[in-house]
Amino acid sequence: MSDKTGSPNVINIKTGLAEMLKGGVIMDVVTAEQAKVAEDAGAVAVMALERVPSDIRKAGGVARMSPPEVIEQVMEAVSIPVMAKCRIGHFAEAQILQAMGVDFIDESEVLTPADEEYHINKQTFKVPFVCGAKDLGEACRRIGEGAALMRTKGEPGTGNIVEAVRHMRKINAQISRVTHMDESELMSYARDLGAPYEILKMVRAQGRLPVPNFAAGGIATPADAALCMQLGAETVFVGSGIFKSDNPEKFARAIVKATAHFDDPAIVLEASKELEGVAMRGTEISEIEEPMKMANRGW
């Protein structure tokens, strides 16, 4: 690396990778075979897991970082970027993932949190992090800690899009408010949101989060993907939605197609017809007991 680099006008190298993933679909996979299916279908990255969120929900107990062998097999199988999850606050898991050379770390509420007070100080890592958020305050806190990419939390493993929509709508509405605030209003709003003032100032200047904003949690159909993209998500994460459907290959391809052409209903219709199977069985959010809601993990 040249020692004269580091201009403040250059988007940081970690967020740079997030920029490259825009307009795509990131798929949860649990085996090398699934990773190949995802790559062949046109996934822009894969998330290597031991279990998809819906199975984590069913299994109960403590959900941890996947065994390194699972992640390594996926890394060997595909050439697209490989992401992996660590528990909220579990910086030692994150260090392991970085040592393995994964391309992105998801500090994820899908796993059982390791620290109820602190998230990982992501600034100290060379590998970029993605984190979930329910609102602008949470997004700004994670960006302040060094997250290179944000995503909605949604309610993972439910096949129910309502929570992702709620989070996306809320963040959009709050950004819109911020763009109309003057300095004194902004400081008081930063206090109310619990958001770092400097990050909020960047949000106001750009009219958007200073890092890319993706959707996750409950996306199960091409229409779900198109909905999130039209609400302003720049890429979608699909967790259980693909490999818990009737026909993973078709679902993966159809969701990729609908995401690339999210603004053309005729093509989203085409994609929806190509599914040849039913989507994963969904879960009504009110049927999930409050302590079981993953979106409430982290702050």
């Binding site: 690396m1 040249s2 680099t5 201009s7 250059v10 990778l17 050379g101």
Partner: peptide
């Protein structure tokens, strides 16, 4: 992989 991503200078213009 991503861990090897870096910046470079081309005639004083920084690139990634």
């Amino acid at each position: 992989r991503q861990i090897d991503s870096h910046h470079a200078l081309i005639d004083g213009y920084e690139v990634s």
